[in-house]
Simulated scan of single mutants.
Amino acid sequence: MLDQTIKVELSTTKKQKPNADQLQFGKIFTDHMFIMDYTEGKGWHDPRIVPYQPITLDPSSVVFHYGQTVFEGLKAYVTKEGKVQLFRPEKNMERLNQSNDRMVIPKIDEQFALKALKQLVSIDKDWIPTAEGTSLYIRPFIIATQPFLGVAPSSQYKFMIIMSPVGAYYKEGLNPVKILVENEYVRTVKGGTGTAKTGGNYAASLKAQEISSQKGYSQVLWLDGIEHKYVEEVGSMNIFFKIDGKVVTPELSGSILPGITRDSIIQLLKYWNIPVEERKISIEEIYEAYDKGLLEEAFGTGTAAVISPVGELLWKDRKIVLNNGETGPLSKKLYDTLTGIQYGTVEDPFGWIVTVE
């Protein structure tokens, strides 16, 4: 572990906290943030918690021109007893380093980063909303800060953590979404940056998302970038299908982000002795299963929504409605169990929860 003390500068002017019914995702931020710098030859240094504030960067900083950046997303929850909990945060730090490796960013000390995250949450724990379904969204990220116009890894970086109180994702219950299968644009390809959580992947998805919104669909179902045949992800989530009693999800083939919620769902299904497979799934197979009456449910998984049931799919002008457009029993059970573990109302048999003092 990095043998450095985290310097703490507390804010002298506290912000007004929003009411639970006014929370919008990523619009309001807590009083403090974490920053740590990297300099080539010196390594990561000067870890500090400071008042939330703008940062000053040179206009030629590498991040602005060549997109050398990675990020993570996780949440802090308050139990009915007032305990502050994190859900598998060590996996986020592990994945951050996997993204660092792909984007040629110096790796962080995962244990030290988690220590810093927990200290930041502890300082701003009064910002964690307590209304049902609310939480504190935590965004660790790294940007390349060297002032240099050249296609090469930066020699300077900043690792930061900011936090935002967020409302319940499903204010009116767990409702299925309409999905458009994307046939022209792709999210990424094997050998690309699909397995890294980097900004460019999300920028590349915006055009297809804009088109789907114009057609009245909330998300895009991405197909593989080579054959435009195999299912990959839905929006910025992993995707699962329940076909004839068995749950299938695309295998991690080199272009799919290894979701922490995805992994948790797979472990839960195995724990319940529900058959689950990670393999290639073609969009044709999905439609054939529907035609045979075997396609029971489909749902996306991710940090923000946990479970996002799919109620409708449109592919090449052919629309299919899943489970009468209603949330399926497995989707509901998975959502209730996972959120129950996160909020401390359901037993955690996996040791996923980390408590913040």
Rank of each mutant, 00 (worst) to 15 (best):
Asn183Cys: 14
Leu334Asp: 07
Lys42Trp: 09
Thr195Met: 15
Asp244Glu: 12
Val84Ala: 10
Ile55Met: 15
Tyr169Ser: 13
Gln342Phe: 02
Phe241Met: 15
Ile108Pro: 00
Glu278Ala: 05
Ile226Val: 15
Glu94Asn: 05
Leu206Phe: 11
Pro18Glu: 10
Asp336Tyr: 02
Tyr290Thr: 06
Leu74Thr: 06
Ile243Tyr: 00
Trp315His: 13
Val248Ala: 11
Lys197Trp: 04
Tyr77Asn: 11
Val78Pro: 12
Trp315Leu: 14
Leu149Trp: 03
Pro129Thr: 04
Glu312Gly: 04
Glu233Trp: 02
Leu314Ser: 07
Asp58Thr: 01
Glu357Met: 06
Gly254Gln: 10
Val247Asp: 08
Ser236Ile: 10
Gln85Gly: 03
Trp127Phe: 09
Pro59Cys: 04
Trp352Lys: 02
Ser61Gln: 07
Ser61Gly: 05
Ala298Trp: 02
Leu117Pro: 02
Trp222Cys: 10
Glu184Ser: 05
Ser154Ala: 13
Glu278Arg: 00
Gln68Tyr: 03
Thr134Asp: 05
Asp21Glu: 10
Thr303Ile: 03
Tyr217His: 07
Glu312Leu: 14
Val310Phe: 04
Pro275Ala: 12
Ala196Ser: 13
Thr56Tyr: 09
Glu72Gly: 02
Lys83Cys: 06
Lys229Phe: 08
Val231Glu: 06
Pro153Ala: 08
Glu9Arg: 00
Ser236Ala: 14
Ile266Ala: 07
Leu313Phe: 15
Gly340Thr: 06
Tyr343Ala: 12
Leu334Thr: 09
Gly150Thr: 12
Leu334His: 00
Gln98Val: 08
Ser331Phe: 01
Val276Phe: 10
